[in-house]
Amino acid sequence: MHTDRGSEYTSDEFRTEMRQLGMRQSMGRVGSCYDNAAAESWFALLRSEIGTSVWATQAEARADVFRFTEVEYNRSRLRRHPEFGYITPLETRAWL
């Protein structure tokens, strides 16, 4: 889980809970907002595409996010790639 350096994220209570859940924490540098830009951009896109629906179950929410990410975004959405023209994110990974 990536967080900023807010007091709620640096507290012993929060860090203990992270360990108990088996999660690892990373934090942005002091005074830098750029490390969160990619994640915030992705979540803004996700919200605009699937909305802020209330799903009946966690499984339904996961399925909707998975469908958008793996079917619509990674396999269908064309992105401009400087070397290869318009390709999907999945095709971009093949070149890396």
Rank of each mutant, 00 (worst) to 15 (best):
His2Glu: 05
Asp4Phe: 05
Asp4His: 08
Gly6Trp: 04
Ser7Leu: 09
Glu8Cys: 13
Tyr9Thr: 01
Thr10Val: 06
Thr10Tyr: 02
Ser11Cys: 07
Phe14His: 10
Phe14Asn: 02
Arg15Ile: 11
Arg15Met: 10
Thr16Leu: 15
Thr16Ile: 14
Met18Asp: 03
Arg19Lys: 15
Gln20Gly: 12
Leu21Ala: 14
Gly22Leu: 03
Gly22Phe: 02
Gln25Thr: 11
Ser26Gln: 05
Ser26Tyr: 07
Ser26Gly: 06
Ser26Asn: 05
Met27Gly: 11
Gly28Glu: 06
Arg29Pro: 01
Arg29Met: 05
Gly31Ile: 06
Ser32Cys: 15
Tyr34His: 11
Tyr34Asp: 03
Tyr34Phe: 14
Asn36Gly: 04
Asn36Asp: 05
Asn36Met: 01
Ala38Gln: 08
Ala39Leu: 11
Ala39Asp: 08
Glu40Ser: 05
Glu40His: 10
Glu40Tyr: 05
Trp42Val: 09
Trp42Asn: 07
Trp42Ala: 03
Arg47Asn: 11
Arg47Asp: 09
Ser48Phe: 02
Ser48Gly: 11
Ser48Tyr: 02
Glu49Asn: 03
Ile50Pro: 01
Ile50Ser: 00
Gly51Ser: 08
Gly51His: 09
Thr52Lys: 09
Trp55Asp: 02
Ala56Glu: 14
Thr57Trp: 06
Glu60Asn: 09
Arg62Gly: 07
Ala63Trp: 03
Val65Asp: 00
Phe66Cys: 13
Arg67Val: 08
Arg67Leu: 11
Thr69Lys: 00
Thr69Asp: 04
Thr69Phe: 00
Thr69Tyr: 00
Val71Leu: 15
Tyr73Cys: 06
Tyr73Ala: 02
Arg75Cys: 10
Arg77Trp: 04
Arg77Met: 06
Arg80Pro: 05
Arg80Phe: 13
Pro82Met: 09
Glu83Ile: 03
Glu83Ser: 12
Phe84Lys: 00
Phe84Pro: 01
Phe84Ile: 04
Tyr86Ser: 14
Tyr86Ile: 07
Ile87Lys: 00
Leu90Met: 15
Leu90Asp: 15
Leu90Val: 12
Thr92Glu: 09
Ala94Lys: 08
Trp95Met: 13
